[in-house]
Computed example of a mutant assay.
Amino acid sequence: MASTGGEGPVAAGAAGSAGPAGAAGAAGTGAAPGAGTDGRDEVDRITAAWARVRPDLDVAPLEVLSRVSRLAHHLDRARASTFGAHGLERWEFDVLAALRRSGPPHRLTPSQLLPQTLVTSGTMTTRIDRLAARGLVTRQADPGDRRLVVVELTPAGLAQVDAAMASLLEREASFLDGLSRRDRDRLADLLRALVRPFELPG
């Protein structure tokens, strides 16, 4: 998940600053970032301030999308920290995880890796080279077609991505501690409906 920073694109543009403190100041609240004792969070304060100074605007989208943006920022930091603890960069985890998910023998062609990692073929070649130099993957001829090259997880790569994934799930589960199983399922359904239009084939 890409880091959005501060309020994220929507709220940053609306409040005039990319950082939470700047957004609060621009909104005129003077409040510190984060949730207060009244249960309101920074987005509540920003939207209330905009509703006060621009009552002609419908700020309802900020209620949802600014929180999604802020959550993405926190998740991005948590993932970077988790992967770093296992000696991996985020892009390294992405490639290794794609190979791991493919199942035994954990082997894919570079072209099969591209849509799962959302990078160009040139970038993928460089990433495979770096992972191979670390002993986490190997590059070899495809047993079914010697004209093709396949990338395969090494035992070291498999162990590293498995350990990182277990830590990631434990870390991210803590983000959902305040929600019941039913609420989690409902939230997943709502987010799926929100994201789906952006991921439909063009």
Rank of each mutant, 00 (worst) to 15 (best):
S69R: 00
R40W: 05
L57C: 04
G34W: 13
I128D: 08
A164T: 12
A21D: 13
L168F: 10
R45G: 03
G202Q: 07
A163T: 11
P61N: 05
A48C: 01
A193Y: 05
S174C: 08
L114V: 10
V43F: 00
V68K: 01
A11Q: 13
P61S: 05
E170D: 15
L200W: 06
G34P: 13
R77D: 08
L136H: 03
R147H: 11
V53K: 01
L118V: 08
G84T: 04
G28E: 11
V161L: 09
R70M: 03
T47W: 02
R147A: 09
P104W: 04
L168G: 06
A14H: 14
G157F: 13
V10I: 15
E172F: 15
T126A: 13
D56L: 05
A23R: 10
L108A: 05
R90N: 03
L65W: 07
L194T: 11
G87Q: 03
V150Q: 00
H73Q: 00
D189P: 03
R184E: 11
A31S: 13
D162C: 11
T123D: 08
R147D: 14
A51I: 02
G84Y: 05
L153E: 00
L108Y: 01
T126Y: 10
E152Q: 15
R107G: 09
D94V: 08
L136V: 11
L153H: 13
E89A: 08
Q116R: 12
S174E: 14
A166D: 13
F198G: 10
T123A: 10
L65Y: 03
V119T: 12
A35W: 07
G28F: 02
G84H: 01
W50H: 06
V149I: 00
A133K: 14
D185F: 04
L131A: 10
F93T: 02
G144E: 12
R139L: 13
S3M: 00
R147K: 01
A35Y: 12
L136Y: 14
P105L: 04
E170Y: 08
P105H: 02
P33W: 12
A49M: 03
D129V: 08
A24R: 15
G30E: 10
L65P: 01
A24S: 15
G87L: 02
V161G: 12
T4I: 14
G13I: 09
V119H: 06
L153N: 04
G34K: 13
R90H: 06
V59S: 07
D41Y: 07
A48F: 00
L88S: 04
A72L: 00
A132I: 12
A193W: 09
R107D: 01
G22I: 05
R171T: 14
L153S: 11
D76L: 00
R107F: 00
P20V: 13
D76E: 02
P33V: 12
R181Y: 04
L169E: 14
L176M: 15
Q116V: 04
V95T: 04
G157S: 15
D189W: 09
T47K: 03
A97K: 03
S174F: 09
A51S: 10
D185E: 12
D56W: 03
L190E: 08
L179H: 12
L190K: 05
S3N: 10
P197D: 07
T125R: 07
S81E: 09
R54L: 04
A26L: 15
D129Q: 05
R182M: 06
P155K: 13
T154M: 14
